[in-house]
Structure formats: C-alpha cells, structure tokens
C-alpha cells in the first residue's frame, strides 16, 4: 500500500478492508496484547471480543455508523446503530446488557432530526432491555463531519463460551431472512429512486428476541454466526472459507432475495450477495441439528433458508474459496470483492 491513499474500497468490507485491518492495525500490536483474561480479541477478529470473569464470559463490541440518507424507509441511523451493535453481541451468542454511545454532530444539524435519531436509538435499547450506561456527545464545526456519526459500544454476557466463528466440514449454511434489503434501500435512496423501486425497506432490526434464543439453545451445534453487513453475504462466506481453509458451496437459487430487491439490483447491475443486511444472521450449523434450528427460527418469526454447506476442499486451489451452483447448473466462484467493475470484453 506504499504511496497510495485510503479509498472507499478500503472500508467496503472486501479484500481491501482486510488489508487495512491485517497490516495497519493487527500487525502493529504485539501478539501477547491481542487478548486478555482468557478471552479472545484480535486473534479471532470476530463480531466481538470477550474476557472471562469467574464463570461468565463478558463480551464487548463496538461499531460506528454513517449513512446517507440518515432517514430511510425502515429506519434511521439511530436505530441502525443500536441494533447493529447489539447484533454483533448476538452473533457472539451473548445477551446484551449495557450500551454506551458516542455521537458526533455537525454544526447546523437540525435539532428535530437529532431528537428523532437519538429517540430511535434509545427505543431499540429499551425494547431489548439494554441499559444505556453512558456516552459522549460532540459538535464539530460545519464541514468537518458530514451530518452525524454515531458510535456504539456494548457489553453482553454469556454463560457458555461465546461463538468464535469456526466453520466445520459438513456444516450447513443458514440465512435467517431475505438478504440485501438494507443495502438496496440505501442505494435506491442515494440514487433518488425510492419512487421507482417501490417496496424497498431496510431490514435494520435487533436480533435479540428472534435469533439469540436459538443460538443459546443450540449453542453446541452452531459453529459460526455473523450478521452480513458491509460486504454482504459474499464477504461473510469468504471470510469463513479463508480463515478455515475449507470450501463453502452455496446454491444460488436458494439464497432468499425478495423480488422487489432482485429486480431493482438487476437494473443496477449489483449482485445482492455483496450488499448489506442489517437484520439477518448467517449461521454455520452442524447438519444433524439444522432442521431443528430452521424450525425454531421460523417459530420465532424469521424466514430461514439453508443455502449451502461447508466441505473439505477437493483440491488445493479450492481451499478458502466460496463456490456457487448457478440456476442453470454451472459452477462459479463468489469473490470477496465488494465492488463492481466492468469485466465483460
């Protein structure tokens, strides 16, 4: 990365983001300081980190949110930030208990809007019985921050060891609901296309009530859990394949994409697998219990599908790769790239 500058690609959750995290951050920290108190941290690079206190596992996570527009169909940046941070705890199998916020606002930001986004953040926390135990609020001079940035930090508790993603051969890949809803909605809003692309709505929601109980109940058979936000399903699956050295094969036709979303993205030439969901989990589940997990998720109001499986790589080139069986029976690779350049000659 000598001589270059940071581009939006570096933050898009694809291979470029990985380079930043790996080389610029983790590489500079001595290995003995990657984790403390019997827990995991930078060694796992999962949704969150934990330490062990007595018989309990205390799980931490933090994330920051910028989104254009701030209000979008299905939510706003406040609710998005709260549910996004809580979901990272859920994906570790931890029950969220406390939250702290960091709000940076641009001078001139409408008070009414501030009240609305903070309101939906607080409501999300209250609905899920999570305490707001502190935070910080800053105002930046006009032009030095774009509107508003909300960061959240949260603490969760788990009695069992948290889910540190580690997919196993034979696992089935479960997606808990329609994907790419949030990403498609934001894209449509940015293009001024919400009028045309009717029926688009962000799926941003906390997964504390519908998915956490399932993860707690089937903890032993869930080998990995992740919310496919930046970079979408493609990024999540590729990260799992790469870190395990295994192959993940998915059936493209069984990946749930709502028709409105599919048609809109088709017009854009954007692959739904690369777009963010904010209310979906991807699970890697031991095959013997996958039917039970799916059943339980459905009972809780989710709409789960089994989309593929984890296998031993058939050849060395296949290690760490994600493949898709296409609708016509072909086999293609799903690359981790979160961007979209013309390739066809």
């Amino acid at each position: 990365m000598e001589g270059g500058v940071v581009t939006t690609l570096h933050g898009a959750g694809g291979a470029e983001s990985w380079v930043i995290v790996e080389k610029l951050i983790r590489g500079k920290v001595p290995g003995n300081l990657w984790r403390v108190l019997g827990g995991v941290g930078l060694d796992a690079l999962d949704d969150g980190s934990y330490i062990v206190v007595g018989d309990s596992f205390i799980v931490f996570t933090s994330d920051s949110y910028t989104v254009k527009p701030i209000f979008f169909p299905g939510g706003d940046i406040g609710g998005l930030a709260a549910s996004g941070v809580l979901n990272d705890l859920v994906m570790m199998g931890a029950r969220p208990v406390a939250f702290m916020d960091n709000i940076v606002v641009e001078e001139g930001f409408p008070l009414r809007d501030l009240e609305a986004v903070v309101g939906s953040m607080v409501k999300t926390l209250v609905d899920n019985n999570v305490a707001l135990i502190g935070g910080d609020f800053k105002v930046m001079p006009r032009g030095e921050v774009d509107g508003i940035v909300i960061s959240g930090f949260a603490i969760g508790v788990s009695v069992k060891p948290p889910i540190v993603d580690s997919v196993k051969p034979g696992d089935k890949i479960v997606v808990t609901n329609y994907i790419a809803e949030h990403g498609a909605t934001i894209l449509a809003a940015q293009l001024g296309m919400l009028e045309d692309a009717k029926g688009l709505r962000s799926d941003a929601k906390p997964l504390v009530k519908t998915i956490l109980p399932v993860l707690e109940k089937y903890r032993d058979g869930v080998n990995a859990a992740r919310d496919p936000t930046r970079g979408g399903l493609a990024a999540t699956l590729n990260e799992w394949a790469r870190s395990s050295g295994l192959t993940i094969i998915v059936d493209r036709g069984s990946i749930p994409v709502r028709i409105e979303v599919a048609e809109f993205l088709e017009m854009l030439g954007v692959d739904p697998l690369t777009l963010a969901s904010e209310g979906v989990a991807v699970l890697s589940v031991r095959s013997s219990i996958v039917d039970d997990v799916v059943e339980e998720l459905r009972r809780n109001g989710e709409n789960p599908s089994v989309i593929g499986e984890v296998v031993e790589p058939r050849s060395s080139e296949l290690a760490g790769k994600v493949l898709a069986v296409t609708e016509v029976g072909g086999l293609t690779m799903i690359p981790p790239n979160a961007y979209n350049l013309p390739r066809i000659c």
Partner: peptide, 17 residues
C-alpha cells in the same frame, strides 16, 4: 423506463467507470 432512470441517475452521480 425505471432502468433508464437508474442508469441516468448513476451516471449523474458519478457512479461509473
């Protein structure tokens, strides 16, 4: 027509190669 508008808007907003 929607497709035309999508492409038109994408180019308008500089989302192209």
């Amino acid at each position: 027509l929607s497709e035309a508008r999508v492409v038109f808007r994408m180019v308008d907003l500089g989302r192209y190669t």
